[in-house]
Design a binder for these strands. Structure first.
Lengths: 221, 221
DNA sequence: AGGCTATTTATACACTTGCACAACAACGCC
DNA sequence: GGCGTTGTTGTGCAAGTGTATAAATAGCCT
C-alpha cells in the first residue's frame, strides 16, 4: 500500500518521556563519566554525552548551568563512589584491627576498585588538578580523608600489639601504606592481567605488615 | 615627521628565521608538553602550541603528518626523559647494591622527578591508555623496564646479604617496591608542600628496607 | 476530558578546531 | 649579487563546539 493514508510526518518530532529530575541528572552524570572514560575529556562533548544519555544536547543546559559544572559534578560522583566502597571495608565491627586492615587492603586491590575504566577517569581528571584549583582541592580533601582512615586503623593495629608509636611515626606509616595501596592499585589497573587474582592484595598485605613490623599472620589462608 | 616616507605596510608579513629541522621539531614538542600540562589535552590546540613555539599553526603540518602524531611524539619524549633520569641513579659503579638502591629511590622521590607539571602530563596521557592501545603498550613497556631494573637491584642487594630468593619472591619484592615508589611519587607530586625535603625519600627507603627484611642502616641519619 | 507547566526537542549562532593550499621570503649556492 | 629551494606565513574552509532561545509535547491536576 504505497500511497495509503500514511501521514508520513517528515518532520516528526522525537518522542520522549519525562523522567524525574534526580534520574535525569544521574543519567547525565553517568553518561559523562562513560564519555570521558572512552574518549577523554576532549571527546566528552555535550552532544556525545546527551546522545549516550538518550536525550538531546539542549537538555544538559536545563539541568546544569554549563558543561563545566556537569564535569565537576561527575568528578565528585566518581570520587564519592570510590571512597565509599573503599571505606566500607573498614566498618566490620566484630573483627580485630589487623583483620580490618587486611580487609581494607583487599577491598582496594580487587574489583571493582581495580578497574581500568575507573583508573582512566581518575587519571584524566587528576591530570587537570595542576591547572584547576577546584579539582586540586577536591583531591587533597579526598586524599587526606583516606590517609586519616589509614592512620586510624594503623593506630588500632599497633595498639593491639601493645605498641605506642608517636605522632610522627604514625604519620610515616600512614604515608607509606597509602603509597603501597595506591601504587599497587595503579599496577593492577594498568596491567591487571599480569597478576593472578588476589595476588596484588597478598603482596600489599605482606608489604604493609613488613612496614609495621608485624609478624606474619600465623593461620595463613 | 608624521607623513614621512613611512612605508607603513599594513599587511607586513611576520619576520621569521629558518631553524634547523631538529630544533623546530624539538621546540614544537616542548610547546606541546607545556600546553598539555597547562590546559590539558583539550587545551592543546595547534594554534596554542604554535603560538607557544613562536611559529604559526600551519608549520606544524610541515613537520608532523597531523596533530595526533605530534601528541604521540610528545608523550614518547616525556617518558624518555623520565625513565632516563630515573635509571641514571642506578649507574653508580663503585657503590654497594644497597647504596645504589637507596640512591635510586632518592632520585625518584625528589625534584625533578617529583614535579606537579610532569605528573599532570603523565596523568593526562595515561588516562587515555584505556582507549588508545598505542599508549597502553608504550606504558606497559616502560613499566616492565622499570620493574626489571628494580628486580635486578633487589637481587643484588639480597645476594650481598647472602640470601637466595627464588623467582617468585623476587618478583613480589619488585612489584611491592615499584608500588612504594609510584605511590610516594604521586603523593609528592600532588601534595608536595605537605612533606619536608627528603621526607618522602626517607619514608620510601625505610619502607623498602622493611619489605626486604633488611636491618636498618647503622651509620645513616 | 482539557488546560497548565515544566521538561524536552529542535534550530540558530558565534566561535573554535584541524587541515589544505597558495603566496612569500630566508638562506645556501652559483 | 641574483636565483632557486623550501621553510614559513597567512587565509580559507568545512566540521564541530558550547550556549541561547523558541517551539512542542508529556504528564499532572482538577
Amino acid at each position: 500500500m504505497p500511497d495509503a493514508a500514511d501521514p508520513a510526518p517528515m518532520n516528526a518530532r522525537r518522542k520522549f518521556r519525562r523522567e524525574g529530575e534526580e534520574r535525569r541528572r544521574q543519567d547525565l552524570i553517568d553518561a559523562t563519566l562513560e564519555s570521558v572514560a572512552e574518549h577523554g575529556l576532549e571527546g566528552a562533548t555535550v552532544r556525545t554525552i546527551a546522545l549516550r544519555a538518550g536525550v538531546t544536547a539542549g537538555l544538559i543546559r536545563h539541568y546544569f548551568p554549563g558543561k563545566e559544572d556537569l564535569l565537576q559534578e561527575a568528578y565528585a560522583a566518581l570520587m564519592g563512589r570510590m571512597t565509599e566502597q573503599a571505606k566500607a571495608a573498614l566498618l566490620m565491627e566484630d573483627a580485630s584491627p589487623r583483620q580490618r586492615l587486611a580487609a581494607f587492603v583487599t577491598a582496594n586491590l580487587n574489583a571493582p576498585i581495580i578497574d581500568q575504566r575507573v583508573f582512566s577517569l581518575w587519571a584524566t581528571f587528576i591530570g587537570r588538578a595542576g591547572a584547576d584549583p577546584t579539582l586540586a582541592r577536591a583531591h587533597r580533601e579526598g586524599y587526606l580523608g583516606f590517609r586519616n582512615e589509614v592512620e586510624a586503623v594503623v593506630a588500632e593495629v599497633l595498639a593491639a600489639e601493645r605498641r605506642k608509636p608517636d605522632a610522627s611515626e604514625l604519620r610515616h606509616h600512614a604515608i607509606a601504606i597509602n603509597a603501597i595501596i595506591d601504587g599497587l592499585w595503579i599496577e593492577g589497573c594498568l596491567a591487571g592481567e599480569m597478576f593472578s587474582p588476589g595476588e596484588l592484595a597478598a603482596i600489599g598485605i605482606k608489604a604493609i605488615e613488613a612496614e609495621l613490623g608485624l609478624a606474619p599472620e600465623k593461620g595463613g589462608n
